[in-house]
Simulated assay, not measured.
Amino acid sequence: MFERKVKRNNRTLWILILLLAAVVALMILLPDETTARERETTPHPAAAEAGSEYDHVAVGDMAPDFTLPMYGGGEVTLSKLRGKVVLLNFWATWCPPCMQELSVVQKQIIDRFAGQEFVFLPVSRGDTEREIEATRKRRGFEFPMAMDRDQRVFGLYAKKGIPHNYLIDREGRIVKIELGYDPEGFAELVKIIEKTIQTK
């Protein structure tokens, strides 16, 4: 009687362990919607190469011209920035790597190149003005931002993937494409910006 009870308890314990293992496996193999969305739109930086499956343009191409509304009013036209080096940055409010990158641009890019012929132009991809406003307040972002609500301009440059940076020289040519965010890649991008500004 006692042995039968122990065997029954052992069997129940093994069933519970197997069920728990199945649940853990499902949690690992089936990511939530946000994680899946991030994986689809934000590939690893090493996957980004000019003219790759992620881009409609390549290094050496003339940057497609566009006009977009600015958050808070006004508009920006890329061709009107000719003569300056432009870092065109596509981002979105829901994208964690974008938030990481935007949290360092004030100090590492905007302040560093202040007073030089350089423009940092972040473009929100698909966000509403209310979403941008909430993100700016929460994160303390104060720099100007353009809004690409229908992703039309993003589609001129990229097929997918954010954050997505396009460094554009004074003549309007793309000199560097950077996809994703990691501190080392970003530090390298800063060096290329500096070099591009110095080239006249």
Results as ranks from 00 to 15, higher is better:
1 M>G: 06
2 F>S: 06
3 E>G: 08
4 R>I: 13
5 K>S: 12
6 V>R: 15
9 N>T: 06
9 N>Y: 03
15 I>P: 03
15 I>R: 13
16 L>A: 15
17 I>S: 12
17 I>A: 15
19 L>S: 15
21 A>G: 14
21 A>D: 12
22 A>S: 12
22 A>N: 08
23 V>H: 13
25 A>L: 13
27 M>H: 11
28 I>Y: 11
30 L>Y: 06
31 P>W: 00
32 D>W: 01
34 T>F: 07
35 T>N: 05
36 A>P: 00
39 R>K: 04
39 R>L: 12
41 T>G: 13
41 T>Y: 09
42 T>S: 15
42 T>W: 02
44 H>S: 14
45 P>Y: 00
46 A>F: 06
46 A>H: 11
49 E>D: 08
52 S>M: 03
53 E>I: 14
53 E>W: 02
56 H>L: 15
56 H>P: 04
57 V>F: 10
62 M>I: 11
63 A>W: 02
65 D>E: 09
68 L>P: 08
70 M>H: 00
71 Y>H: 14
71 Y>E: 14
71 Y>G: 13
71 Y>R: 11
72 G>E: 02
72 G>D: 05
74 G>D: 03
76 V>K: 07
77 T>E: 14
78 L>Y: 06
80 K>Y: 11
81 L>D: 14
83 G>Q: 05
83 G>E: 01
84 K>M: 06
85 V>G: 03
85 V>H: 01
86 V>S: 09
90 F>I: 12
91 W>I: 11
92 A>W: 01
93 T>I: 10
94 W>Q: 01
95 C>D: 04
96 P>D: 00
97 P>V: 09
99 M>T: 08
102 L>A: 00
104 V>N: 11
105 V>K: 02
107 K>D: 15
108 Q>A: 07
108 Q>N: 10
111 D>T: 12
115 G>T: 05
117 E>P: 12
117 E>N: 14
118 F>I: 05
119 V>D: 07
119 V>A: 10
121 L>P: 03
124 S>E: 04
125 R>P: 00
125 R>Q: 04
128 T>A: 14
131 E>Y: 02
132 I>C: 07
133 E>P: 05
135 T>Q: 07
136 R>V: 15
137 K>D: 10
139 R>H: 02
140 G>W: 03
141 F>G: 15
143 F>A: 09
145 M>N: 10
145 M>E: 12
146 A>M: 08
147 M>E: 01
148 D>L: 05
149 R>H: 09
150 D>F: 06
152 R>D: 09
153 V>I: 13
155 G>W: 02
155 G>M: 07
158 A>Y: 00
158 A>Q: 01
158 A>E: 00
158 A>S: 06
159 K>F: 13
159 K>P: 05
159 K>V: 15
159 K>I: 15
160 K>A: 11
161 G>D: 02
162 I>R: 05
164 H>L: 03
164 H>Q: 05
166 Y>W: 04
171 E>P: 01
172 G>F: 02
173 R>Q: 13
174 I>W: 06
174 I>G: 09
175 V>W: 09
175 V>M: 12
177 I>Q: 10
179 L>T: 03
180 G>A: 12
183 P>T: 10
183 P>I: 12
184 E>C: 05
186 F>M: 10
190 V>H: 04
190 V>F: 07
193 I>G: 07
196 T>V: 06
